[in-house]
Design a protein around this nucleic acid. Structure first.
Lengths: 388, 388
DNA sequence: TCACCCTACTAAAACGTTTAACCTATCCTC
DNA sequence: GAGGATAGGTTAAACGTTTTAGTAGGGTGA
């Protein structure tokens, strides 16, 4: 393939003129326009400005151009100016592939989407990806997204890192014995996680303190006078699920209330399952029937509220309901839902900061960060908050 | 930098043994282990399997290895087997950067996130990105996400394409005179859009037929006996906003009902603005007060319902409400919300198909696709649908 | 036997950078 | 004025692929 310099030579015009003729960035006399195009045609040249063209125009070697662009080596003021002028005249942008190959880096961060069924959604996780992308960009990186393969999530991670497509990963939705974490640690691949895993594994993560959060809202209910408080949580075994249940016990303990097994329902994270659990709880005999329902997710709380509304129960008055996440719709529900807000933008920014520290091998003050959620009291637990 | 072959030679072991010693993929006698590590140390070699190593182990040239890996040239069965065995023995994965540089392609698709304020959300668009990533992957591509810069969204697109980071783009949330589309068309950058723009521009897009959708739900309300139907839409000027209003007129026309100006409110896409609009509408004199409220988004419908619930109005009985999008929560609301479902996974898949056709320069039967949304009738317009 | 054509492979260039190593004036120091 | 340091450049190698052009050697037809 020919270079722009050769095309210009063949057409007997200055290099810059050849560029203008081919790019259309600036008008050029008809005759030159034609001869440049003819030259490009015969040489089989298609316009593509590289460091060579800049060097040719500035009259220096490509190394000098590189030094100027990266400020990586002393260059005299005069040539620096010439190079920069040439670069802007040609609208030069360094080719990322060339750079990547040379540096063995891509400035790309991998993020694996979780498999979510058609019609379902995970608003909070979706927002996390958004803020993560935002944060990553502030470091000059980008996010490359990929899908977990159903059976072996590891493969996708391995493939991406082995083919040099990404420099590291951000993980979300971690769990105990998370196979991905085990593998990435073993292979010494840089990553940071949104969520914890085994306590004995030492890796950088940010997590929301669900235990503390549920304790907060439970205490809030106790302070409102509730003594029969039920919990609708996730099945045993999940890390954050168990932590949240523990927070419920913490608060009851602190108030010297004894938990009853019949008040604790552990079901999967869907609104219908939560609604069914609520139905069970309401069917308890009057004297043990709970007056407050703590749900470990807004999704569940929404299902519960929907059920209670159908039954004609006055939420907030007859029975209190709380959620977790502060899903954007939760304040638009009827009545608005008391919940725990995850500062998802902060969380994302902190995870990214941890990863960047790994990539640049900077020491971090803390590699494990726990963020407390904020209790947002609304009318579903405290009807006096009802906005007119 | 040295190659694996040299390390093996220096350590006086076979190449494969050197690989095993360094990778730990397979056990190796202590003595060899040590000498290999020593050799690697002195040569400054860090394990990194390239096509050269495969070629060396298979006893062929790197060209042959490339041919085998890509099936791009006839190779005798015997050497093909030798090469494949060598590749698997060394767990070889082609380096994407090398490939990208050579091919001037990255198999990456750019997608610009829309700026969404902290605390807000756009569940449908978030789901779109998910399904898009999924679809893109089925073609062997990945998605690179980036943020629109506030002032000049063009810059980000230009930068990514000029630096060869992406092969094309997927656009969402398009609008009339969309600057991005104008620019990409001019620069002849491959892209496909989720949403329309100017009719005179010829570019590949997929859009949901909002006009038809709103007509559907309006007709549905008419068939239930409503004659005073209000519309809460977006401000004039937006493409899809205007189309949806048009659908409302279509349906009234078809039923020979004459629209009243006071029934049409055009406010921004927030739940509070919609709630305020609903309050205005309810304040109309009894004989002109609407009995049904058509909202152009679920978000608005949720705000309206929240307001009506606060007022003690019986939604579905006293007044009908409908939305648009089928946000996952809409069926969990009280009462469940009648809405129009966008088959967001299909939409994403089709946009991606269009883009792939552009990239591979395949002819497509259709470059402009309009998808009809599906009317989902729930209790907010038809209380008999109420699930127990 | 020779010219020619296959088949199966290799050597080397190319993609666009960065950077290690080298070169050459110029200036400083003694 | 010799010697050395330094500033400011250049040359060329390297990153890991793909691919063009070329070659060796065996078979074929006349």
């Amino acid at each position: 393939m020919a270079t722009l310099k050769e095309v210009a030579a063949q057409a007997h015009v200055p290099l810059l003129t050849a560029y203008h003729a081919l790019s259309g960035a600036q008008a050029v006399p008809e005759a030159q326009q034609r001869s440049v195009h003819a030259a490009a045609e015969t040489l089989g040249y298609t316009l593509n400005i590289t460091i060579k063209d800049v060097a040719a125009l500035a009259g220096v070697s490509i190394a000098t151009v590189s030094y100027v662009m990266n400020n990586s080596y002393p260059v005299s003021e005069a040539t620096r100016r010439r190079v920069l002028e040439a670069a802007t005249a040609l609208n030069y942008r360094p080719n990322a592939n060339g750079r990547n190959l040379q540096a063995s880096k891509t400035r790309l961060i991998g993020y694996g989407w979780h498999n979510i069924k058609r019609g379902q959604s995970a608003p909070l996780l979706d927002r996390f990806t958004y803020w993560m992308a935002q944060a990553v960009e502030s470091y000059g990186y980008h996010v490359l997204t990929f899908a977990h393969t159903e059976d072996s999530p590891i493969d996708a991670y391995q493939e991406l890192i082995q083919t040099n497509r990404v420099d590291g990963f951000i993980l979300a939705h971690t769990n105990r014995n998370d196979a991905r974490i085990r593998h990435l640690l073993e292979a010494r691949v840089p990553f940071a996680a949104f969520g914890r895993a085994n306590d004995r594994w030492n890796f950088p993560y940010v997590d929301v303190d669900g235990r503390h959060g549920i304790a907060l809202v439970t205490s809030h209910l106790i302070s409102l006078g509730h003594t029969r408080i039920a919990l609708i949580g996730w099945p045993e075994g999940s890390l954050s699920g168990d932590a949240r249940v523990q927070g419920y016990f913490d608060a009851l303990d602190a108030a010297a209330l004894s938990p009853q097994a019949s008040w604790i329902r552990r079901v999967e994270n869907t609104s219908t399952a939560a609604a069914a659990a609520a139905a069970d709880l309401l069917a308890l005999p009057t004297q043990t029937r709970p007056t407050a329902l703590v749900c470990v997710s807004d999704l569940m709380a929404i299902g519960v509220m929907s059920y209670l509304n159908r039954c004609g129960v006055q939420i907030g008055y007859d029975i209190a309901v709380s959620g977790f996440d502060d899903d954007p719709v939760s304040e638009l529900l009827y009545p608005p839902l008391t919940t725990l807000r995850q500062p998802i933008d902060d969380l994302a920014a902190q995870v990214v900061a941890l990863l960047m520290a790994e990539l640049e091998r900077l020491p971090m003050p803390q590699r494990q960060i726990l963020v407390a959620p904020e209790l947002i009291v609304r009318a579903s637990t405290d009807p006096h908050r009802q906005v007119p």
